[in-house]
Design a binder for these strands. Structure first.
Length: 316
DNA sequence: GTCCAGGGATTCA
DNA sequence: TGAATCCATGGA
């Protein structure tokens, strides 16, 4: 039955941690976006209750608002939806977190990270959007990646109707952001000039994005084929693209294709590994990579996401 | 191994 | 408040 709202019953799902852990770059906390103070609630005894946390974003061509509730996640869309599989798939509501967590190494740093970030999940994103976003991520901070992606979507993405913002507020000039546009397809990006892309503040990353879009649009590069390949070959294939090294390839394999063994090592994860596992002596880059590849088990990528988020939000 | 490529956000003085 | 540093890096 078609509806514009649904409750996804899921336990152990921390929506905020998941959407704000640097996997995806198009989610916005709703209150922040409108400049309203965060909604505070009190129970009957006057005790503060965790504020209702809503996130607004775009998945494919769907505008979505997600809200963490006691029973799971409430999802609202701007038009009736008959089949919600795209949302379950994106949020990976069917993933068995308990089983994944049990495969993590039983050491103090990992236990701390899991305790601190319980409910953090890996998303399953669209390969093109994920690849493009991470090409744009190189030596950028997460805030800036969000800005670049927002500009790209706003200027070149297909408009999406939204029930969250009045027409007059389609463009928020204070933040320069809006969430009412789909991510532009490879065909669309392939036809944008390098100058126009640079105008989205992507700098030297523009030619790489353009080359990837053209490769895909012209059929020379097949994103669907990656899915069929074993990890090592898939990684090598992605790395044929300009601007895609091992780190970015691993991000795409983990966040879009579900290769749980992929373990992206960026400055944060490197810092986490160094501090948590080699506190006394400086470990070489090579040693850290070898450790990462052998220590964390079959869901190493999941473990990596816990360490990354733990490091970024709890330790610094 | 070294150096370079945007530029905004954040930190520091 | 102005300067310095940092950044989910890869390529020449």
């Amino acid at each position: 039955m078609a509806a514009t709202e649904i409750l996804l019953r899921v336990r152990d799902y921390d929506l905020a941690a998941t959407l704000d852990s640097g996997q995806a770059f198009r989610w916005q906390k709703e209150d922040q976006e409108h400049g309203r103070p965060a909604r505070e609630f009190q129970d009957h005894a006057g005790e503060p209750v965790t504020p209702v946390c809503s996130w607004v974003g775009v998945i494919g061509k769907h505008w979505v608002r997600l809200t963490q509730t006691r029973d799971g996640i409430r999802a609202e869309t701007d038009r009736p939806v008959a089949d919600w599989r795209w949302l379950h798939d994106y949020l990976q509501t069917g993933a068995e977190l308990d089983i994944v967590l049990k495969t993590f190494p039983d050491d103090a740093p990992m236990r701390d990270a899991v305790t601190a970030c319980r409910g953090l999940r890996l998303l399953r994103q669209d390969p093109w959007e994920c690849l493009a976003s991470f090409i744009l991520s190189s030596t950028k901070q997460i805030v800036q990646i969000r800005q670049i992606v927002a500009l790209l979507c706003e200027r070149f993405g297909e408009p999406i109707n939204s029930c969250s913002v009045e027409p007059a507020a389609r463009f928020d000039s204070a933040t320069g952001r809006t969430l009412q546009f789909a991510f532009p397809s490879p065909d669309t990006v392939a036809r944008i000039s390098e100058a126009e892309l640079r105008a989205c503040k992507m700098g030297f990353r523009a030619p790489s994005l353009l080359a990837a879009a053209r490769g895909i649009a012209e059929g020379g590069f097949d994103l669907e084929r990656i899915r069929q390949l074993p990890y090592t070959e898939a990684r090598a294939e992605l790395m044929k693209l300009r601007g895609v090294g091992g780190k970015i390839a691993d991000c795409v394999l983990l966040f879009a294709y579900g290769f749980d063994g992929a373990f992206p090592v960026d400055v944060w994860v490197e810092r986490a590994l160094q501090q948590l596992y080699f506190p006394r002596r400086r470990a070489s880059d090579k040693r850290l990579r070898h450790f990462a590849a052998t220590h964390f088990g079959p869901h190493a990528g999941y473990a990596q996401q816990y360490l990354f988020h733990y490091m970024r939000t709890k330790l610094k």
